[in-house]
Design a protein around this nucleic acid. Structure first.
Lengths: 221, 221
DNA sequence: TAGAATGTTACACGGACTGCAACTTTGCAC
DNA sequence: GTGCAAAGTTGCAGTCCGTGTAACATTCTA
């Protein structure tokens, strides 16, 4: 129906055409999309620069916007809160390769191991670019408020994670999807803390592996 | 020195006396202490009443204060944020019997089991009274923001938990105190979520036991 | 009962965040 | 390229949260 809307009679064209357009996401290379991404990154960078220099509480949204050459109103079109700009929080696309593989029951078939893989893939390939991610991480380690906001952000996506787990476990799950989702939060959080404790050195995957090993040791006593 | 300050010569009395007084916590039954507690509980109750009726975002601090008969400035002498009043967040006394027992290596000697005991004791005997705790919990289940704030509050006490774990594990810990602290957060959080999922019914300890059982099953596969 | 300690209050203020109504820019069809 | 619709930006007015300060009130204690 919608897919051949373009070949409809001119009389009915307008409405159907609009609908079809609305359902067709703009191509990634559109000027609009590129400008949007550029602005978001400019805002994140400006925030990082200022916070790095003056500290989180001394930096106002107004100052960030002046630095980035944008009105404060626009700032809040991009980020829900000031803290989100520091953390580079961004709508989370959950249809990555890793997520699909996890939902399908892979890659190893062991729930905990695959959860580790899933979290690891997120740490390896964050949605805002590695450098920005690392800088956000360094700042967050110094500002307790941001750690909390990060947890809150994760909590917001609980529903999506639960859905992923439910999909994997099927109709009659032996494990509680909620607990698995909470475990994913634990893995992420503990990894961040351990990473921080070691001075931000090394690879995220290594710290994650450490946390999982600790968890196994703790449980099996 | 300080313990016999009262028998000092009159000339030096004033200063030392003041110091001694400052170090002697007021008896629990002082009028001041009772009023303070009463006010805090009145504020929490007023907040609960209004939020229950109008929802978190529609309730202003001003309204809460009018309801409780207190100035808004005083409100912020009791709670850091509006959300804290809903949750009944309160300075956390960590020198409970259970905490001391945990730090000493008890009661069972198994780290995970004892962590369960510790978290359980907190759930059984919250610092604001059972009814208020339950009401806060019901509201939090409906308002995502509060769940996040609750995580943030827990995060604030990470240091204290880590200290407790370090005390238990001694000089050369085989386990990472940070990871254990994160695990405590996980247990608390997952318990809350599972409690909520079951409609708020039952005992907190039962839900906690469920979560621990799930965790064991997940890890041992 | 006086004086120290503690708590409450009004007031003024900074800053986060929102709704709205112009205005500008981009995408698209012809 | 012209015109029109969709999307994005901006200024502005306004709400509310949270803080510093200094005067005032209450409680405690010697």
């Amino acid at each position: 129906m919608i897919s051949n809307a373009k070949s409809d009679a001119p009389a009915a064209q307008s409405d159907l055409q609009q609908l079809a357009d609305a359902l067709t996401p703009a191509p990634d290379g559109g000027l609009r999309e590129r400008k949007k991404r550029a602005r978001r990154e400019a805002l994140i960078d400006a925030t990082h620069r200022l916070v790095e220099e003056h500290g989180l509480d001394a930096v106002t949204v107004e100052a960030i916007c002046a630095e980035a050459g944008v009105s404060t109103r626009t700032f809040f079109n991009y980020f829900e809160t000031k803290d989100d700009a520091v953390l580079g929080h961004v709508p989370w696309p959950l249809d990555t390769e890793a997520a699909v593989a996890f939902a399908a029951g892979g890659p190893s078939g062991h729930l905990l191991s695959d959860l580790e893989t899933l979290v690891g893939s997120f740490l390896q390939d964050p949605p805002v670019g590695r450098e920005r991610f690392n800088r956000a991480f360094e700042i967050a380690a110094r500002e307790p408020r941001l750690l909390a906001r990060h947890l809150a952000w994760f909590e917001q996506h609980k529903g999506q994670i639960v859905a992923l787990v439910e999909q994997r476990l099927g109709e009659e799950p032996e494990r509680s999807p909620l607990v698995v989702a909470a475990l994913a939060l634990f893995l992420t959080h503990a990894t961040f803390m351990h990473w921080d404790e070691s001075g931000g050195a090394g690879d995220g995957g290594d710290h994650l592996a450490f946390v999982v090993a600790e968890l196994r040791a703790l449980v099996t006593d």
